[in-house]
């Protein structure tokens, strides 16, 4: 089990997760656009926001890989399956708390349940389990994070 393996897994896993959600968008399954959501924290230009968002999401993917690695070390085991199980927890955290509760609070351009007539946010809040971005968003998020977790777990266990 190596930290470099986990980081490599984090890099590959993030690319797979981001690309998977992009494909789901193009196929009409979801309006969930993580790079746009993250990038619009800094700008309301959509093209620039997407670029900034990709970078932030990639860095996030590496940071989460370190968290996975810490758990692998604490438990004393890493692998595809264990990584995938952590991916389920990760998806619940991302879809249930991180994007739905925390992001709207810190995002200067996103509405919240409390936004009233005094505010004119330009991004709708994601809603519970991201359902406002399409009903199948939660399934896509789950699949993406399970794939990410499996890749991080597999890479951490097998790369030296």
């Amino acid at each position: 089990m190596t930290i470099w393996g986990a980081l490599a897994g984090g890099a590959v896993g993030t690319v797979v997760l981001t690309s998977g959600l992009r494909i789901a968008q193009a196929a009409g399954y979801t309006r969930m656009d993580i790079p746009l959501l993250l990038g619009t924290i800094f700008t309301d230009n959509r093209s620039r926001a997407s670029l900034i968002g990709y970078v932030i999401h990639f860095v996030n993917g590496l940071l989460f890989a370190l968290v996975y690695y810490a758990i692998f070390r604490a438990v004393g085991h890493a692998g595809w399956v264990f990584g995938a199980i952590l991916g389920v927890v990760h998806a619940a955290f991302a879809g249930g708390i991180l994007v739905t509760v925390l992001l709207p609070v810190v995002h200067p351009r996103m509405g919240t349940l409390w936004s009233d007539s005094e505010e004119t946010p330009i991004l709708e809040p994601p809603g519970f389990l991201l359902v406002n971005y399409g009903r199948r968003t939660a399934i896509g998020t789950l699949i993406g994070h399970v794939a990410y977790g499996a890749i991080v777990g597999g890479f951490a266990a097998h790369l030296h």
């Binding site: 009409g28 979801t30 991004l123 709708e124 406002n132």
Partner: peptide, 27 residues
């Protein structure tokens, strides 16, 4: 500005086809 953003974001699920109405939360 807010309404234009909503318009472009809400309709992404069905684009290039546009649905005639959308729920206010984007669903």
């Amino acid at each position: 500005h807010a309404f234009f953003w909503w318009l472009m974001h809400a309709s992404r699920l069905t684009q290039p086809r546009l649905q005639i109405l959308y729920r206010i939360d984007g669903n």
